[in-house]
Write a protein that binds this DNA or RNA. Structure first.
Lengths: 316, 316
DNA sequence: CCCGGCTCTGAGCAATTGCCCGGCGTTTGG
DNA sequence: CCAAACGCCGGGCAATTGCTCAGAGCCGGG
């Protein structure tokens, strides 16, 4: 009898679920139809859910991405996580990731609440900024985490801040320094300069830090672009570097390395664990160790990546 | 650009749908997450639905039944329709159908509003009544549509009304007559009797008529049980009879036949189209023509059947 | 047989949702 | 180039939903 009762209750739950989700009835209509009280109809619908009699299927590439994002967020304790579909034709193109990062930037810029946005550099950052349509944002402040002067003295091509400033007319605070200087002493000196210390103070209060994540290996972007020499690269590798965020080289555990080029880096320091929302945007097999490190060290508490990378990150 | 916008809107709709249905977020949370207004989040969820990005799957035998019931209801303009799962082991056993018919009866009896319930006879009716637990229903009235005296003079074994009365203690009005009498003249006379005309008057005001549907063929129940002779059966077949409801023989179009045994039938007449809720309960391949007829003639405006029969009815 | 504990029920309320409205930006036609 | 038309947006409100709580009915133990 108990099983009979239970059976008929599940039958009713299925009826209620069908009427609610598939036929689109209100719970009141269901109650009248099944001749029960509205409260019971609600319980039946909820039972249908909890017994998994009904399942939802989202027929859209985004569904898998959402699922991966939720797992990443859970696994690494992230405040924010987005996964964009991987483009099968060009698995390393940052299109999707840049779009999502751009959307995050744009949403923050569109908000009424004045925000301080600190951004890094690199191709992904630049691509993200390219997503933004021109808009007037006089209430927001943009601040750079990284020096904007290349080794050859020119402004860096991938200076995302400058481009974003063009587009938004927001108040902007570039870091008027070379990325790396000649010596630790010189860095100490330069950091005392008014404009520089002001940038650092502002960046410390940022509401959103948006950064790329770079790998440190033979094809590391900081090396390829000539910011550091081959010897310096080898030294960092010897010190255990696997990746960098805003120039700060980290080991596999995500600890910022105390030594090597980090001593001559003018970038704003990044607290670990991150305090404000700090989102890393990166994708690709070669960046996996770097991304893992940034997550482990809690340099970042947000991640924007693509489907393939997300899957790899979740595979232990 | 338009397609880009549309694409990203659908992407967002998919995100919203995922967050709402799969992750169980409220629309407010979704709005915050996607940085849009709550109203827009609602629109996205609704878009996800209307674009059929998300589909609901009900993993339960009942799902197919609900679908069939909805189609029957639509096709035949029914007020009430239920389809019970077919029992593969015994496809003609009325278990599921009787259970649903019983549930309908029980729900009506449990209601506070005093109801007049008119019921027919037959195995399905009797099985339906057997579903009902004992209960006190002094406010309801039960009335029989069909005479309760068998050809051999005994009370019919399948007299559902008597059994239901035992169980419910409701006020009851059996029809104290043989199902068929000897002649039209005798019928006219008997119908004038006080108790009989009272039953007919009450039945005319019934809130619910619950009837079985019988086939008229060589194995017709009215013939097998000895209510009519073989010659009478042949005559009714000659007049086009394919089925009967409460004893009233109908042709394939559902028109009550004017002639033959119908002239000596003491049952309460059934208006066509049915006015009050009039539910037929029947299943089985052999009853298909009879069920079709009852539906076509609008003798019934409600149907309880099983899955296999429902499918056959929908196959034109 | 009676009692305590348990589950289930429906009333009522607060949160959530659906939708209508005026306003704004964009597009199309003149 | 302007103006009308269109569609989208967010505010606000009514309907719907989820949930709590007290009470009723049921079961098992003494």
């Amino acid at each position: 009898m108990a099983s009979d009762n239970e059976r008929s209750r599940l039958d009713d739950a299925a009826r209620a679920g069908w009427l609610y989700y598939i036929a689109g009835n209100t719970q009141d209509e269901i109650a009248r139809r099944l001749k029960v009280s509205r409260a019971t109809a609600q319980r039946l619908v909820s039972l249908c859910l909890s017994e998994r009699l009904i399942t939802f299927r989202l027929e859209h590439p985004i569904a898998a991405c959402m699922e991966l994002a939720a797992r990443l967020q859970d696994r690494f304790g992230l405040v924010h996580c987005e996964v964009a579909p991987t483009n099968p034709a060009a698995p390393n193109a940052p299109n999707g990731v840049a779009e999502r990062a751009g959307a995050l930037l744009e949403a923050t810029l569109r908000a009424d609440k004045p925000a301080i946005i600190a951004i890094g550099t690199g191709r992904t950052m630049r691509a993200a900024v390219e997503q933004i349509p021109p808009m007037d944002c006089p209430n927001h402040q943009l601040v750079s985490l990284v020096g904007n002067i290349s080794p050859d003295g020119s402004a860096s091509f991938f200076d995302a801040l400058a481009r974003l400033t063009d587009l938004t007319k927001a108040r902007h605070y570039p870091m008027p320094l070379p990325v790396f200087v000649a010596s630790e002493a010189e860095r100490q000196q330069l950091l005392k300069l008014g404009p520089v210390s002001r940038v650092r103070a502002l960046a410390a209060k940022a509401d959103l830090n948006l950064v790329g994540i770079g790998q440190i290996d033979q094809s590391a972007q900081v090396y390829v672009d000539g910011f550091i020499s081959h010897d310096e690269l080898l030294e960092m590798l010897r010190l255990g570097a696997v990746g960098e965020v805003a120039g700060w080289a980290m080991d596999a555990q995500g600890r910022v390395i105390d030594g090597g080029t980090n001593r001559r880096l003018t970038s704003v320091p990044l607290p670990a664990p991150a305090r404000a929302l700090t989102v890393g945007a990166a994708l690709g097999r070669s960046k996996l160790p770097a991304i893992r490190a940034a997550l482990k060290g809690r340099i970042i508490n947000g991640l924007i990546t693509d489907e393939a990378t997300a899957q790899a990150l979740l595979k232990e």
